[in-house]
C-alpha cells in the first residue's frame, strides 16, 4: 500500500512545529500503524534525516504508551483500540494520513509526536492509591465484595492512562481518566479510608495541571480504547460534591 503522510515535526518543547509531508510505499495491509512508522523511520535514517519521534512500548494495547491523533481522531479511525492495535488495512491505498500529537496544555510536546503525560502521574500521586496494612498475604475471601461492584471497579481499572480522553475532548479535560481512577478505589472496601480526601486531592491536582472542565460531550467515552464509561464521571461528581458538602474535615479547611 502507498500513503502520503502529513506528520507534525517539532524539534523540541519550546520550538515551533509544522506538518511535514512524506511519501511511503510498499506497506503491507497487515502492518500495524506503528510498524508503518518504523518503516518510515528506517527510510529517514537511511537518508540521514532525523527519524519521527513517537511513543510506544508494549505494542499490544495494554501499556497506554502509544498515542497519536490520526486523521482527526485519537488513536485513529477505529473504536476501542490503541494506535498499536490499528492496522493499515483500516486505510485505503493512496490515502493521505495526518498525524499529530495529543494537544493539551497539560501534555506539552517533548519532540515531534511525543508528549509529556506526567501530569497524569502527579494526579495519581495526589490520591490515586490505598493505604494497606503490611504483613502476611490476606485470605482471598476475607473482604466480601459483591460481584457487580467488583466488576464495575474492574471496568474502571482497565484505564491504561493513554490520554485519548484528554486528546479528543474539546476542552482537553481529564475527567474520564481521573474519574476512572477515583471510581476503581471508591467502589471497593479497601478504598474507603481515603475515599473523600482522595477525590478532592485528585480533582485539585487535575485543575492545577491545567486540564479543562467537562461539558459532557462524551467524546472521551467514544474514543477510549478501553471503553471506560462516563458513568465514572457522574460518580466522581457525586463523590466530590458529597465530600465538599458533607464530610466534616472538608470544613476544617482541607484543600
Amino acid at each position: 500500500m502507498k500513503f502520503t503522510l502529513k506528520i507534525w515535526r517539532q524539534a523540541g518543547a519550546n520550538q515551533s512545529g509544522e506538518l511535514k509531508t512524506y511519501e511511503i510505499d510498499n506497506i503491507s495491509s497487515d502492518m500495524s500503524f506503528l510498524e508503518m512508522l518504523d518503516v518510515l523511520n528506517e527510510n529517514l535514517v537511511q537518508k540521514g534525516e532525523d527519524p519521527v519521534h513517537f511513543d510506544h512500548d508494549c505494542r499490544e494495547g495494554i501499556c497506554g504508551m502509544c498515542s497519536l491523533y490520526i486523521n482527526g481522531r485519537a488513536h485513529g479511525p477505529q473504536r476501542a483500540i490503541t494506535t498499536c492495535q490499528l492496522h493499515m488495512r483500516s486505510f485505503n491505498d493512496g490515502d493521505t494520513i495526518v498525524i499529530e500529537p495529543w494537544r493539551a496544555k497539560a501534555f506539552p510536546v517533548v519532540k515531534d509526536l511525543v508528549v509529556d503525560r506526567s501530569a497524569f502521574d502527579r494526579i495519581i500521586q495526589a490520591g490515586g492509591f490505598v493505604s494497606v496494612d503490611t504483613g502476611g498475604v490476606p485470605d482471598a475471601n476475607l473482604i466480601p465484595i459483591p460481584k457487580d461492584t467488583a466488576s464495575e471497579a474492574m471496568d474502571a481499572a482497565t484505564c491504561i492512562g493513554c490520554g485519548a480522553c484528554v486528546a479528543t475532548c474539546k476542552n482537553a479535560s481529564a475527567m474520564l481518566f481521573v474519574s476512572a481512577k477515583v471510581s476503581q478505589l471508591a467502589m471497593l472496601p479497601q478504598g474507603q479510608v481515603e475515599r473523600y480526601s482522595r477525590v478532592e486531592k485528585m480533582v485539585a491536582q487535575m485543575d492545577e495541571e491545567g486540564f479543562g472542565s467537562c461539558t459532557n460531550t462524551y467524546a472521551c467515552e467514544a474514543e477510549c480504547p478501553k471503553e471506560i464509561s462516563v458513568t465514572n464521571i457522574a460518580r466522581m461528581n457525586a463523590e466530590y460534591l458529597k465530600s465538599k458538602f458533607t464530610s466534616s474535615d472538608s470544613f476544617a479547611g482541607k484543600s
Binding site: K6, L19, Y69, N71, G72, R73, P77, V98, E100, R103, A104, K105, A106, T168, K170, N171, A172, S173, G210, F211, G212, S213, T215, N216, T217, Y218, A219, A222, E223
Partner: peptide, 27 residues
C-alpha cells in the same frame, strides 16, 4: 468555564474530526 477550556488547549489540531465522537450541539 469557557476561558478555562480554551486555555486548556493553546495549540489546536490542524485536522480534527470531532463529529465522529460527539454531537454538534454538545460542542
Amino acid at each position: 468555564l469557557g476561558r478555562m477550556n480554551t486555555q486548556a488547549r493553546p495549540v489546536r489540531y490542524s485536522y480534527n474530526k470531532p463529529a465522529q465522537s460527539s454531537t454538534w450541539n454538545a460542542r
